[in-house]
Amino acid sequence: MSRRATIRTAHDDAALVARAISPDNTDEMTTTVERDDTEGDDTTGRLVTRIDRETTSGLQSTVDDYVVNLEVAIDVASQARAVQGDQPTDTGPVSDHDTDSDTTHNE
């Protein structure tokens, strides 16, 4: 008899968290993203992770590992969003900036 657990968690960018956690998933795990259409935002949604194990202790161990890995994935995703938000999207032409150096040569 197989033991099963389903873990659902809501996220601002569920697809990003899913990509961050996917390397830690084992063959006994599947993670999908359910979009939350009520928010009008295609990034808001839920991660749904299903874990199947043969023993109760194996299921408990895998769920414990998953929750720790999920915490790290959420932290990494939030840090990635923060860094991306700090990056300028358009710095404009370089010539728009004043310079302190004299580029003309008078001989």
Rank of each mutant, 00 (worst) to 15 (best):
E107Y: 11
H105S: 12
H105A: 12
S95R: 13
Y66V: 03
V63G: 02
D24L: 12
R46G: 01
L70M: 07
T44N: 12
R81T: 02
D64Q: 09
H105V: 13
L59H: 00
V68C: 04
D64C: 02
T26K: 05
G40H: 04
N106R: 13
T43M: 00
R3F: 10
D98P: 14
V33M: 04
D13Q: 15
Q87A: 13
T26A: 10
T49V: 03
A82Q: 08
P23S: 08
V94A: 12
R81Q: 03
D75E: 11
R35K: 14
R8P: 01
H105W: 11
S95P: 10
D24E: 15
T56S: 10
R4Y: 14
A73S: 04
V76I: 11
D36H: 01
E54C: 01
D13I: 14
G85A: 07
L47D: 02
E28L: 10
A14R: 06
A5Y: 10
N69L: 10
V48K: 04
D42V: 10
S78A: 12
S95N: 13
L70A: 01
D12M: 05
D36G: 07
S61R: 06
I51H: 06
R3C: 07
T99L: 08
Y66L: 05
V67T: 08
D42I: 11
V17I: 02
A80S: 13
A14K: 06
D75M: 04
S2A: 14
A73F: 02
T32Q: 08
A5M: 15
G92N: 00
T38D: 10
R35I: 10
N25Y: 14
E28R: 13
G58Q: 08
R19E: 15
T55L: 06
T104Q: 13
L70C: 00
T43L: 05
T49S: 09
R3Y: 12
D75C: 02
T6W: 07
S61T: 02
T104G: 12
I21C: 01
D64A: 07
S57I: 01
D86K: 12
G58Y: 01
N106V: 10
R3W: 08
